[in-house]
Simulated assay, not measured.
Amino acid sequence: MKFDWPYFWESLLSPSPQFLSGLALTVIISVVAMALALLLGLVIALMGRSRFLPFQLFASLYIWVIRGTPLLVQLVIIYTGFAAAGIFRFEDTDVLGSLIKGAVQAAIIGLMLNESAYISEIVRSGLESVDRGQNEAALSLGMTPMHSMRKIIVPQAIRIMVPPLGNSFNGLMKSTSILSIIGVSEMFQVGSTMSAATFKVFEIYIVVALYYLLLTTVWTFIQTAIENTLNVRAGLPRAEPVFKRLFGIRSRKQATPAPAIALQPADAA
């Protein structure tokens, strides 16, 4: 089988309206699911830090179940399993004049639930990285726990959380490729349909891969800009340049020699 270069370049540089629609749906699902996952992940993280034991148990159970089961299985249970069991069925819904298919709703919910379990751990680690003495000092000055969290703890924790959260969003975008299992016409599903109709399997899937690469590369630029903004506000060095991140290049910082320890008279003896 010969590689069809003209078809490849045409598909890459002049994609069909169906392919562009799948690309747009991929971006929309990724952004909406990530936004909802951030909110739910924050709630789960705060429940895990709560002094109320049932909240702690629920957060631990939620993270254990979600992180311990595959996303593919979760999607099938949410979309197909619940409907088969008569628990809940996702129906096509009109929102502000736009028809949102049931499969798209299930995809957003599934990605949100899956990603929130990981985000909750990122948020928890970020909050715990801030020295507790700062919270105690804020409370001693008369701040409420909520005010201290919002004004003192969260602004410092956000800078620490941005890199792992950005990586999570990167992974979420790539995870949308499995949404075809529940019939979502995202970019991978459209590519699969095109390859089946034209028998240009290799050409189409390379185009799909390159567009996923484009999405993740664009996000890398955005993430780097966000990190640089936060670092500048905190008076810290700028993040690694984008091209170094893309190609896995890291600057090698020279290790600072440990200061010599002067011997005390007692030690010298």
Rank of each mutant, 00 (worst) to 15 (best):
T93C: 14
P145Q: 00
M143G: 02
R89N: 01
V31I: 06
S125N: 08
E186Y: 00
M149F: 09
A209G: 02
L75T: 02
I261N: 04
S140T: 08
I152Y: 12
G97L: 11
S50I: 11
N167M: 00
A260V: 14
V130A: 09
A269P: 12
G68E: 08
F188H: 12
L25D: 05
I28G: 11
L210H: 00
A266T: 13
G22W: 12
Q189S: 09
A138R: 06
L57K: 06
L263Y: 06
S140C: 13
V154R: 08
L210T: 00
N231T: 09
V123I: 10
M146S: 10
I222T: 14
G235P: 00
I152V: 11
G183P: 01
Y212S: 00
Y7W: 11
I160V: 04
A268R: 14
R67C: 06
P257I: 00
K151I: 10
A255M: 05
R51E: 15
M194F: 11
V208I: 06
L96W: 14
G102F: 12
T216R: 02
L39R: 04
M34G: 07
T69V: 08
L96S: 10
Q56V: 14
T69Q: 09
G22M: 10
K174W: 07
N170V: 00
A33N: 04
S16T: 15
G183F: 01
K101W: 11
S98H: 13
M1V: 10
V123L: 02
G97N: 13
I122M: 04
W219C: 08
S177L: 01
A266M: 08
T193H: 06
P15A: 01
S30C: 04
I100V: 08
A262W: 15
A234T: 11
T217L: 03
F221C: 10
R252N: 03
W9M: 03
S129K: 06
D4C: 08
S195P: 02
K200Q: 12
R67Y: 05
Q105M: 02
A117H: 09
T176E: 01
L213F: 15
P265R: 15
V76H: 12
V242C: 15
I66P: 06
V190Y: 07
S175Y: 05
S148E: 15
I152A: 14
A138Y: 10
V207G: 07
Q156K: 03
V32G: 03
F199Y: 10
L96Q: 15
I44W: 14
A262G: 13
A24C: 12
L113W: 04
S140N: 09
G235C: 01
A268Q: 11
T224G: 08
I28E: 13
F8Y: 12
F58I: 04
K244V: 15
I222E: 13
E203G: 03
S177N: 00
T69K: 07
F88I: 13
F169R: 03
A138P: 12
F8K: 15
A269G: 15
L23H: 08
K200P: 05
N114D: 07
D4L: 13
G183V: 00
Q264R: 09
Y118P: 11
G86C: 04
A255Q: 13
E227F: 04
V154D: 08
F8I: 07
